[in-house]
């Protein structure tokens, strides 16, 4: 396979998984413009790293890894500059079913998700994406049982916090 064909194929694979990039960007950025910037940043890194993809993991797993690494790094960079770049509940909302009527309990849930650190957000994003524990572990670099434990802890924590939070 010549270089041009390989590159075309790579771009086609990126296109097929574009939704993944949008979701990762949505999980770490509130503003449209920031989301676009982040997606562009991720695409550049995917392109730069394409020769390092050796097929040992699925293409989507590799894409998730690059996308999350870029998103978390960008998030930390912006957070350290005290920029308003954080997970809006509207972002997570886009991962779940749309809500017709504003739901205060749901807003409390998303508010609590907003407060999670970037790695736990990644974990929750992958869980909401219905990835298997094995794949989540492979993407994040933790064991399958650790994934289960962490998800259970997050659920428990969110449940407690929501129960304690006053619903306005």
């Amino acid at each position: 396979m010549d270089g041009g064909t390989a590159e075309r194929e790579f771009v086609e694979r990126l296109e097929r998984h574009r939704g993944l990039l949008v979701k990762v960007a949505a999980a770490y950025c509130r503003e449209d413009e920031q989301r676009e910037d982040l997606i562009q940043d991720i695409v550049v890194q995917l392109w730069s790293s394409r020769k390092r993809f050796d097929g040992r993991v699925k293409f989507s797993t590799w894409m998730y890894r690059v996308a999350l690494n870029v998103a978390i790094s960008a998030y930390r960079r912006k957070a350290n500059q005290a920029a308003a770049l954080d997970l809006g509940f509207s972002a997570v909302e886009s991962l779940a079913a749309p809500v017709a009527v504003p739901d205060p309990e749901r807003e409390v849930l998303f508010d609590r998700i907003d407060r999670l650190d970037p790695l736990h957000r990644a974990l929750l994003l992958l869980y909401l994406e219905e990835r298997s524990y094995a794949e989540i572990g492979e993407i994040l670099g933790i064991s399958e049982s650790n994934v289960g434990t962490k998800i259970a802890r997050i659920k428990q924590r969110l449940r407690h916090e929501i129960a304690a939070a006053p619903i306005v």
């Binding site: 390092r52 690494n69 790094s73 790695l119 994040l140």
Partner: peptide, 14 residues
């Protein structure tokens, strides 16, 4: 640092 590596490992290095 290889951004295609597992997230935790890459973040630790970064």
């Amino acid at each position: 640092v290889d951004l295609g590596g597992a997230v935790l490992c890459v973040q630790q290095r970064l």
